[in-house]
Simulated assay, not measured.
Amino acid sequence: MTSHDFTQRFLFDETDVRGELATLDRSYVEVLAKHSYPEPVAQLLGEMLAAAALLCGTLKFEGLLVLQARSSGPIPLLMVECSSEREVRGIARYEEAEITASASLGELMPDGVLALTIDPRHGQRYQGIVPLEGANLAECLSGYFATSEQLPTRFWLNADGRRARGLLLQQLPPSRIKDAQARQDSWEHVVTLADTLTAEELLGLDNEVILHRLFHEEAVRLFDEQPVAFSCSCSRDRAANALISMGQADVESLLDEQQGEIRVDCQFCNEQQVFDAADITQIFAGGGTQTPGNTRH
C-alpha cells in the first residue's frame, strides 16, 4: 500500500455527491512520537488527525483549521491543527490511571464539546461548537454537520497507532439530480454502501480498492493525491513574541525566579526555546532572537 501521507478527492459523476480519503502514516507516527500516549488516546488522536485532513480537503480556506474536543473525563483535551497546505500537528491531555482499553468515547470524554474553528489568513474567524455526542468521533463529526445546517456530510475514521485513515462523503448542491426525493435516495444509497466498509479494510486497502469495493456499480472519478505532512508552527520568534507580550518587567522578574534562564516549551512538538539574560536584553532592545540564544530539544 502507498506509504506516504495524502488526501485524495473523488466524485460521483451521476449524482451530487463528492468524497475524500485520507491516509496518514508518517505524520501520525511523528505526532505520537512527541508524547507517550495510551492506546485509546493514540487512536482518538489519529482519528482526529484524519478528520482534520479530510476537512481541509473539503472546506475552501487559506489559513488554519482547528479541531478541538474538551471534556470533564479522563481525556480533557484533544486538539488537532491542519493548515490549508495540509500541515498537521496534534496533542492530547489525559489521566492515564483513569483510562481503560475498552472504554467508550462517552466514558473517556463525558460532558464533552466539539469545536471546529477556521482561522483564515484574511477575513473573519469562524467557530462552531456542538456537544460531543455519538458512539465514536466519526458520528460526532457527522452530527456536527447535521446540526450546523451545512451540506449533509458523513465520516468514517479509524486509527491503530501506526496508521490513521478517514473517508468522507458529502452531498453537493443540486446539479445532476433536481428532484428532492431522488437526491435523498441517491445520498442514502452511497452512505449505505460506505457503511459496509470495515475498519480493517479502511486501514489496509488502497484507495482504488476501497472505492471499487464500495462503489463498483457507480461512476466514480478519483483525483490526484494531495500530500499531508507533520509540521509544527512553533519558533524562537514566536516564543520571543510571547515574552514581549508579558512586558519587560515581568519577564525580568521571571528570569530571576528561573535562575537566569526562561524555558518556553511547545506542547505539540516538545521543542524547547531557552532565553538567558543576554537574550532578554536583546529582545526588548529590538535586536531579534538570533545569537547569543540557543535552541534546546
Rank of each mutant, 00 (worst) to 15 (best):
L211Q: 00
N158K: 13
A135H: 13
D160H: 06
S253G: 06
G128F: 11
T23Q: 05
G73H: 11
F10A: 10
R213E: 02
G287A: 09
V264K: 02
V80A: 09
F284Q: 03
Y37Q: 10
V80H: 03
G106V: 09
V41E: 04
M79C: 06
D237P: 01
S142F: 04
R93G: 12
P110D: 11
V29K: 15
C232S: 08
I262A: 00
R26A: 09
G287Q: 13
L172A: 06
E139Y: 06
A240I: 05
Q267L: 15
Q226S: 10
V41I: 12
L44F: 07
E47D: 05
T295G: 01
D276I: 03
S102A: 13
H216E: 08
D276L: 01
Y94C: 09
E257A: 14
A50R: 03
L77D: 07
E139S: 11
E257K: 13
Y37P: 08
L78W: 04
M48Q: 15
L151R: 08
R125N: 03
W156C: 05
R236G: 11
D279C: 11
M79L: 13
V17T: 14
F275K: 00
G134T: 08
E133Q: 14
P173T: 09
D179C: 05
A92C: 10
P173V: 10
A138K: 05
Q43I: 14
C232I: 12
E208C: 00
S84T: 14
L172E: 15
E20G: 07
R213Q: 09
G260Q: 09
A239N: 04
V17P: 03
Q258R: 12
K34N: 12
N270C: 05
S253L: 13
D250C: 03
V113W: 07
A199W: 02
R263M: 03
Y28H: 14
Y144K: 08
T7S: 15
A277F: 01
R163H: 06
T153P: 01
A239R: 05
F145N: 04
A22S: 13
E188F: 00
G166R: 05
A103I: 07
V130P: 10
L151P: 01
F12R: 12
F6I: 02
S245W: 12
E201D: 11
A180K: 09
I177F: 02
D195R: 13
R183P: 08
V66W: 00
E200S: 13
K60H: 15
V66Q: 10
L59E: 13
S83N: 02
I129M: 13
A138V: 03
A242G: 13
R86A: 07
E47V: 01
E95L: 15
D276P: 01
V191E: 00
S71R: 06
Q258P: 00
I283K: 04
D265G: 10
E257D: 15
T147F: 08
V191G: 00
F230S: 14
E217F: 05
